[in-house]
Amino acid sequence: MGETLETIRKAIRSNEWTRPTAGHAEGYVQTNLVILRKPLAFDFLLFCQRNEKACPVLDVTDAGSYIPALSAPEADLRTDVPKYRVYENGVLTSERNDIKDLWEDEFVAFLLGCSFTFEKALMDYGIPVRHIEENVNVPMYHTNLPCHESGIFKGNMVVSMRPIPAKDLAKAVQITARSTKSHGAPVHIGNPESIGIKNVSSPDFGDAVTIKEGEVPVFWACGVTPQAAAIASRPDLMITHAPGHMFITSLKDTDVTI
């Protein structure tokens, strides 16, 4: 931790950094990435608008451009994510450290807000963030919470989980509710089974974390939701970040906080 934005972005671009980004480049907005061909871009933009809690849009590139002009004009979306995933017809076919050889003139890239952005605020108020404490990836889960459909895009919401001391629940809700472009307030608190999570100790993405006595599992909408939509909707091609391996923008947390 404590790396500057320039240091961490350079390390990612040179493939020296291929691990999750939670707790790093503090103060800068982290985002999820979705890349689609132009014919599907409008339907996906509408999917994001209809499911803003899970897919808050921060930036969209012009067709063929790999430069996110509004959020990081000095960056390159082909190289500046620690790990990418490639889905073809709904099937995860590869994970890669860059996508330069895959780039097409029809590609449109979407940057969607990420809950990593509000974690520093939680810690500043003395609320623990367990996956950072344990140096693992945040746990993420498929749920039974349906998304609103748009064109071919459909599926259920994915959520991330952080154990929160019961005494701090109200404070955690208030803090994260300010970050409307980073998923905002939780979508569920407590009993995981009521949103379709059978075993909170066995996440679908990321790593399990310790839930201590007196803590409650709290669930936030997650930007891995489009990857669940890719599996359910089967677009011919969708490129995303690998869960937890985010794109770090040049925006400050305060730019997207109420």
Rank of each mutant, 00 (worst) to 15 (best):
D101S: 06
G196T: 01
E26L: 14
F116G: 08
S65A: 04
P203Q: 04
E119A: 08
G151W: 07
F219E: 04
V187I: 15
I211C: 07
V108Y: 12
E215N: 12
A63T: 15
S65Q: 00
D253V: 11
I99F: 02
A232H: 05
R78Q: 09
P146E: 06
N144G: 11
V86P: 04
S14P: 04
W103N: 00
A229G: 06
T210K: 10
D105P: 06
Y84H: 05
L5I: 05
Y141A: 07
K171G: 04
T61S: 09
T61Y: 05
P217Y: 00
G113D: 04
A185Y: 05
Y125A: 13
I248Q: 08
K198Q: 14
D59C: 01
L92P: 03
R96D: 00
D101C: 00
D255S: 13
D253F: 07
H148P: 07
S250Q: 15
F219K: 01
I132Y: 10
P146C: 03
N191V: 10
I189Q: 07
E26G: 12
P128C: 08
I231N: 11
T254C: 12
V256Y: 06
I132R: 12
E6H: 13
L145R: 11
T93Q: 07
T4M: 02
L251Q: 03
M238N: 10
R234H: 09
K198H: 13
R96E: 02
D62C: 14
L122K: 07
P226N: 01
L102R: 09
M157S: 06
A75C: 13
G206C: 01
L58W: 01
T117Q: 07
G190E: 08
Y87G: 09
W17E: 04
S202M: 12
P192C: 05
T79N: 02
R9S: 12
M157D: 05
L122Y: 07
H142I: 13
P163A: 06
M140R: 02
Q227V: 01
I248L: 13
R37Y: 07
